[in-house]
Computed example of a mutant assay.
Amino acid sequence: MAGLLDFMKRLGTDAELAKAYQDNPKGVLNDTDLSQAEKDALLSGDLDKVKALSGAEDVNMTHIVITSFEE
């Protein structure tokens, strides 16, 4: 359970990982040691499954990416 929760925390704090996940979620997940059920839950966006597999009751899922471009 800690693996999924740790991965989700890293997605929220590691900009490079978040960008890679945005571009290729399956590829990023294939490079983790998460179980197939955990990977499937994240990819499906099924919040109830993610909560159950992570052990965290207070899980919220968003998919917001803020990008800054310099001119």
Rank of each mutant, 00 (worst) to 15 (best):
L4A: 01
L4S: 01
D6T: 15
D6C: 02
F7S: 00
M8C: 15
K9N: 10
R10A: 02
R10I: 00
R10N: 12
L11N: 01
G12N: 14
G12W: 04
D14Y: 07
D14N: 15
D14K: 08
E16K: 14
E16D: 15
E16N: 07
L17H: 10
A18C: 09
A18Q: 12
A18M: 07
K19A: 15
A20R: 02
Y21C: 02
Y21V: 00
D23S: 05
N24S: 15
N24P: 05
K26Y: 07
G27F: 03
G27Y: 02
G27E: 04
V28C: 02
L29C: 13
N30Y: 07
D31V: 04
T32Q: 08
D33S: 08
Q36C: 04
Q36W: 06
A37T: 10
A37P: 02
A37L: 14
E38W: 03
E38Q: 15
A41Y: 01
L42A: 01
L43G: 09
S44E: 10
S44V: 06
G45C: 06
G45F: 06
D46H: 09
D46T: 08
L47A: 12
D48N: 11
D48P: 04
D48M: 07
D48F: 06
D48Q: 09
V50A: 04
V50G: 01
V50Y: 04
A52R: 09
A52W: 02
L53N: 06
S54F: 01
G55L: 10
G55Y: 11
A56T: 06
A56N: 09
E57W: 05
E57N: 13
D58H: 14
D58Q: 13
N60F: 09
N60I: 11
M61A: 09
T62A: 10
H63W: 12
H63T: 09
I64T: 14
I66D: 07
I66N: 11
